[in-house]
């Protein structure tokens, strides 16, 4: 593909006995915002560090712009990194921190000045040149770290959970700002996070990882609406994951009732995971063909109410904008296309 910038080919990584990456294959397109998303220990940061050159994969190849870069040391790669704790140089002031990379590449001082000023105004910190980095707040340090990386005009910016240390409000602001910067500069961002909402908000492409393997690659909408397995469904937003059986194509059974669905290609009577988003249930009058249960509790969540509805052995999580009194007997209606059928996840081989 022409616009492929980075390609990972069968990347595996082990620390002694422990295998942290298992045969990762991934293409990163030029100018896209791609996010590695997963719980801690899933291998997302290791993958990022292999692209940056800070770790060397046990096997597999990394290509950059068509060139094999396995043996290119990090200081010769055309990418820059924003580290988790920013890693600013405390012995230098803001200006000298941002100018660090340009001085190494022997850029003339007048050009350095111009580029540093431009970066500072981009991150809304003009006038901070002489400040000591230790006197800045977390959010300001974050912006300096971004400016220090971007001033070198990298083709790719790697970001390792850069918003993790910020409070919620600042985080939301930075999410919007980062996305705006990425679009304005038109460079590739590779972003690592364990926060699914962050991933959905900013990314063009989301790579969901677990246990050193890629679970799913797709657009935020695609991953949310069509998760490939129960793990992705549960990790991206909230989900009801119910044991069920695929009677035949387009018909499934769960919770003692039989439903039409839109999936096919399973063996007859194959046990499956049935995944239903809590907001896809509609609360209606109880009737025979649908799931009925008792409202166990209700919590106000701002936009919606979160309710647990107990039906036999199974408790369903339901989101609704209309509250229901605890103890009420209700029916739960769900459209065939909102019933997602997934193969039973294989137990992890180790």
């Amino acid at each position: 593909m022409k616009d492929n910038l980075i390609r990972l080919e069968n990347i595996s990584m082990s620390y002694g006995e422990k295998q942290v990456l298992k045969s990762i294959n991934l293409d990163v397109r030029d100018k896209e915002f791609i996010t590695f998303l997963g719980p801690s220990g899933c291998g997302k940061t290791t993958t990022l560090r292999i692209i940056g050159g800070f770790e060397h994969q046990t096997s597999g190849n990394v290509y950059f712009d068509g060139q094999l870069i396995n043996d290119v040391p990090p200081h010769k790669r055309q990418l820059n990194t924003v580290f988790q704790k920013y890693a600013l140089f405390t012995h230098l002031n803001v200006y000298d921190n941002i100018a660090f990379g340009l001085r190494i590449s022997k850029t003339p001082e007048h050009e350095i000045k111009e580029r540093v000023q431009k970066m500072l105004s981009m991150v809304n910190l003009s006038g901070y040149e002489k400040r000591a980095v230790t006197s800045l707040s977390g959010g300001e340090q974050q912006r300096i770290a971004i400016a220090r990386a971007l001033v070198n005009h990298p083709r790719v910016l790697l970001l390792d959970e850069p918003l993790g240390a910020l409070d919620l409000k600042l985080r939301k602001e930075m999410q919007t700002e980062l996305k705006a910067i990425q679009q304005a500069l038109g460079i590739t961002f590779i972003f690592v996070t364990h926060d699914q909402e962050e991933a959905l908000t900013m990314s063009d492409t989301v790579v969901v990882m677990k246990g050193g393997k890629i679970q799913q690659i797709g657009t935020p909408i695609g991953i949310y609406n069509e998760p490939v397995n129960a793990f992705v469904a549960d990790f991206i937003g909230e989900s009801n994951i119910i044991d069920g059986i695929m009677n035949e194509d387009y018909v499934c059974t769960f919770g003692g009732k039989t439903f039409d669905c839109t999936d096919c290609g399973f063996a007859k009577n194959e046990p499956v995971d049935v995944v239903i988003r809590p907001e896809d249930f509609r609360m209606v009058m109880p009737r025979e063909e649908i799931i009925c249960g008792i409202v166990e509790n209700i919590v106000f969540k701002g936009v919606h109410y979160e309710m647990h509805v107990k039906s036999g052995e199974i408790t369903y999580l339901v989101h609704s904008t209309i509250p229901e009194v605890v103890g009420t007997f209700v029916g739960l209606e769900v459209e065939p296309f909102d019933i997602h059928i997934m193969k039973k996840s294989q137990p992890e081989e180790n």
Binding site: G52, F54, H75, N80, T81, F83, F89, G101, S105, N152
Partner: peptide, 14 residues
């Protein structure tokens, strides 16, 4: 900062 050395390398320093 545990990444300070890596940050310098990342910015092109040998």
């Amino acid at each position: 900062d545990k990444n300070a050395y890596e940050a310098a390398i990342d910015l092109g320093a040998t």
